[in-house]
Amino acid sequence: MVVTKAKKPKIDRTDWRSLPHSQWNVRTVHAMFAELNREHFGVETYLPMRNWGFEQGVIKRALAEHGADVLHEAFTLIFREYKPTPDYPILTAGFAISYRLNTVIPRILADRQRKEKAEKTVVNGGMAAEEIASWL
């Protein structure tokens, strides 16, 4: 009797809108940038910063350092803020990571900490007993 293993369905790494962040990779980020450049700036052909090897390395390091969920939020924010020029009509992943990420990530992390702190306050029933006593 021959036992065959069922093949796992192939994951579409370019479907960045529905792919869980835990499964994102370099291909996912490139697909995101190509699609967002098409949507925001009407540019059909995505070209990387410097070359494909450079950009793939930059993306891989950023995914390992920050995680896909933070990068997804950061890239969305960077696209909203980017103003294309005749010399730079598209936003590349290499540029976003190399020059914009260091200004956006701290804002995102601070915002997440504020939200987390607010949720803890609400979950814990508002103010602590000591805070209420000091008000009275």
Rank of each mutant, 00 (worst) to 15 (best):
M1H: 09
M1A: 12
V2S: 08
V3N: 04
K5F: 15
K8A: 15
K8E: 09
K8F: 10
K10C: 01
T14G: 06
T14F: 11
T14E: 15
D15E: 07
W16S: 02
R17E: 14
S18W: 02
H21C: 12
Q23A: 07
Q23F: 09
V26Y: 03
R27K: 13
V29L: 05
H30W: 12
M32H: 08
F33G: 14
A34W: 07
A34R: 10
E35V: 05
L36P: 04
L36C: 05
E39C: 00
F41C: 02
G42S: 05
L47C: 06
M49K: 12
M49T: 07
R50L: 09
R50N: 04
W52P: 03
G53K: 06
G53S: 08
Q56T: 08
V58G: 01
I59N: 00
I59W: 00
K60Y: 04
R61M: 04
A64V: 01
G67F: 06
D69L: 10
H72T: 11
F75Q: 13
F79H: 04
F79S: 07
R80V: 13
R80N: 15
E81A: 09
E81F: 06
Y82R: 14
K83W: 04
P84W: 10
T85K: 12
D87M: 12
L91M: 11
A93D: 11
F95M: 12
A96D: 05
I97G: 13
I97D: 13
S98P: 00
Y99V: 12
Y99T: 14
L101D: 05
L101K: 01
V104E: 03
V104W: 03
P106C: 05
P106Q: 02
R107I: 06
A110F: 09
K115E: 14
K117I: 13
A118P: 08
V123W: 13
N124R: 13
G126Q: 08
A128N: 12
A128V: 07
A128W: 13
A129I: 14
E130N: 02
E130Y: 09
E130I: 09
E130R: 05
E131K: 06
